[in-house]
Amino acid sequence: MKPPAFKAKIFVPFKGIDWRINSSKLMYGGYFLFLTIGLIASQVNLSSNNDFSIRTLLFSILGLIFYSAYWGSQEKEQKYGKLEGELEICVERIRINDYSYSWTEIEKFEFRIFQVVDEILWTETYPIERYYGGPAYSQGVNNFIEFMVDDKKVKVFFQLETPSHKVELRRMIRLLFFHDRIDLSTTYLGLNLEYEETQELKKAKGKYLEDQQSKVSS
């Protein structure tokens, strides 16, 4: 029987500045123009014609800010980078494309799990951030693992494609904990577990070990 393994597409962030326009940049650019023009106009004596033009411009910029807020509520993330390669995690090793790292050489393993593709951002923890612009729907590539090998840090971002893909990863993390590949604090911090859930996880590990021992005995 083939041992269980979690697989995902690797996300490779690009270096440099992302010049693409999105709702967040449009909103903050609108804020900057609105405040700058308003400040200059308040310090200068304007004729009635110029005053009308400035007011029209400011209302236009305000409309642009409201439009960017609407755009953000419909927008999907387009992270500055590309999907390339494959990550595989199993009880025996971590494979990143053609490179494999056994758990015996891995140190200081950490991970974080966030959204899947098209999952709504911010709503659970920081709903007010929806008013600050930016995409409403995730690309699912903020998830990552990080560890040390021979004093070298390895950090890989990867995409969670569906809710079931996320469940698959959580199951693999539990299995790694059951096999002592990662410790308890790493597990509950990465999974964002509450105290009660952590206690249930510890009980589940004990039961898993008992079941494995009974299988060996039989």
Results as ranks from 00 to 15, higher is better:
1 M>S: 00
1 M>N: 00
2 K>Y: 02
7 K>G: 03
7 K>T: 08
8 A>T: 10
10 I>Y: 07
10 I>H: 01
15 K>I: 00
15 K>C: 00
16 G>M: 11
16 G>V: 08
22 N>L: 07
23 S>L: 06
29 G>M: 08
30 G>I: 02
31 Y>T: 11
34 F>H: 07
34 F>T: 12
34 F>V: 01
40 I>Q: 06
45 N>W: 02
50 N>C: 06
52 F>W: 08
52 F>G: 11
54 I>R: 05
54 I>S: 03
56 T>P: 00
58 L>A: 12
60 S>H: 10
61 I>D: 04
64 L>F: 15
71 W>G: 01
73 S>Y: 08
74 Q>G: 00
74 Q>L: 15
76 K>H: 14
77 E>D: 14
81 G>H: 02
85 G>W: 11
86 E>S: 13
89 I>D: 00
92 E>G: 12
92 E>M: 08
94 I>Y: 04
96 I>K: 08
96 I>S: 01
98 D>N: 05
101 Y>Q: 02
104 T>Q: 13
106 I>G: 01
109 F>Q: 03
112 R>N: 15
113 I>G: 11
118 D>T: 01
121 L>G: 04
124 E>S: 09
127 P>V: 03
129 E>Y: 09
129 E>P: 00
130 R>A: 15
131 Y>E: 09
132 Y>Q: 06
132 Y>K: 07
133 G>D: 04
135 P>W: 07
140 G>F: 04
150 D>G: 05
150 D>S: 15
151 D>Q: 14
152 K>H: 14
152 K>W: 04
153 K>A: 12
154 V>S: 06
160 L>C: 02
161 E>V: 05
164 S>F: 06
164 S>D: 07
164 S>H: 05
165 H>D: 09
169 L>T: 02
170 R>T: 06
170 R>I: 14
171 R>L: 11
172 M>S: 01
173 I>D: 03
174 R>Q: 08
175 L>Y: 08
176 L>I: 04
178 F>Q: 06
181 R>D: 01
182 I>D: 05
183 D>E: 11
183 D>N: 12
186 T>L: 05
186 T>H: 04
187 T>R: 02
191 L>Y: 05
193 L>I: 03
193 L>R: 03
196 E>M: 10
200 E>D: 13
200 E>K: 04
201 L>A: 00
204 A>M: 14
205 K>C: 10
211 D>I: 01
211 D>V: 04
211 D>G: 12
213 Q>S: 15
214 S>I: 12
214 S>H: 09
217 S>R: 13
218 S>R: 10
